[in-house]
Design a protein around this nucleic acid. Structure first.
Ligand SMILES: [Zn+2]
Ligand SMILES: [Zn+2]
Ligand SMILES: [Zn+2]
Ligand SMILES: [Zn+2]
Lengths: 163, 163
DNA sequence: TTCAACCTGTTATACTATAACAAAATAAAA
DNA sequence: TTTTATTTTGTTATAGTATAACAGGTTGAA
């Protein structure tokens, strides 16, 4: 596999992919879950993409490789990966991306760039605590959080300023 | 129009609808925007629903009343109302609900009950400030925020406990 | 080996949203 | 008031996202 440099950060993205796959194998083994071929390859393809991947984009890639190419195939894989905490869904984009710390239970908070469509996951415990507290004020028991912030990322801001 | 009591809070929801429509008229007048028949009725129908309304649910209601019943009709009305800040879209439900304080510029933060599907809008300045600060740490310029929390509302929690 | 649980294949369909162009209505300019 | 520009609506077609339902195959345990 050739080196793959992430457009914005410039890091060797292959390392991310490898490490994510290892973590996935490990977690599934621990929990008695089966990371089947199609599930594993789906996860890998999601990670290989530099931005969140739509279900049908993923389906096309899987189809190219000879996997069954009907929607349920990909949605089943996605459901599994979501349930296992290996990926997140970005609701405002109807797209999926690999979780950067699948080993820790957490909610995915995202910064989404309007320009380059890159997504960064962030995890701030203080915001989580504030949200729980605010919900509790209304006697609301929190279960899930969708936190998706859009705007301009650092790189695109610089690029825009120099025009 | 008969009195309409909101399922959870028990308040007379007609008052909400009336007041929302008045605010809408006023805001549109101020900004030189046209609150046409279909836009006005769409807003009213969204308010008449006790929970977020899907685009095609709205379309069906409009069709019953003799409005044109092709999707673009309803999506145009929704686009207008969104741009005017009169409604919000709940991304995780693909549904729309009336904004409770359309007169003030703000982001919609939502508490969504998994049981009854009621949605409460809340607006906490401190969370907003935290989010801006966290984004700034990454040199990210915030433009929009999607904050959608799900869980159990007060009423449903009580109902569940008594089973 | 037999059974049960789980995973995958397949077809059909439901739900959500936009493109593209024509016609009508409204507002502004002449 | 007529003309013109702008905005809104009508209409048809299509793109994009997601699930239902049932049949068939695999896996691992009893
Ligand atoms: Zn994550
Ligand atoms: Zn960017
Ligand atoms: Zn609001
Ligand atoms: Zn509830």
């Amino acid at each position: 596999m050739s080196e793959e440099h992430h457009p914005h950060t410039g890091h060797n993205h292959n390392d991310c992919i490898e490490s994510a796959l290892e973590t996935a194998e490990q977690l599934c083994a621990e929990q008695g879950q089966r990371l089947t071929k199609v599930r594993r390859r789906a996860l890998e393809l999601i990670w290989e993409s530099h931005r969140p991947l739509g279900a049908y984009q993923l389906l096309a890639k899987l189809a190219e490789e000879g996997f069954n190419s009907a929607p349920p195939t990909v949605y089943r894989a996605l459901d599994f990966l979501l349930a296992a905490g290996l990926i997140h869904k970005v609701e405002s984009m109807n797209a999926f991306l690999g979780c950067v710390h699948a080993d820790k239970a957490h909610k995915g908070y995202f910064l989404i760039c309007d320009e380059c469509h890159n997504v960064m996951e962030f995890d701030y415990q203080d915001i989580h605590a504030s949200l729980i507290a605010r919900a509790a004020e209304q006697d609301f028991e929190l279960r899930s959080e969708t936190i998706e912030l859009t705007g301009l990322c650092s790189a695109c801001k610089k690029a825009g300023a120099s025009l």
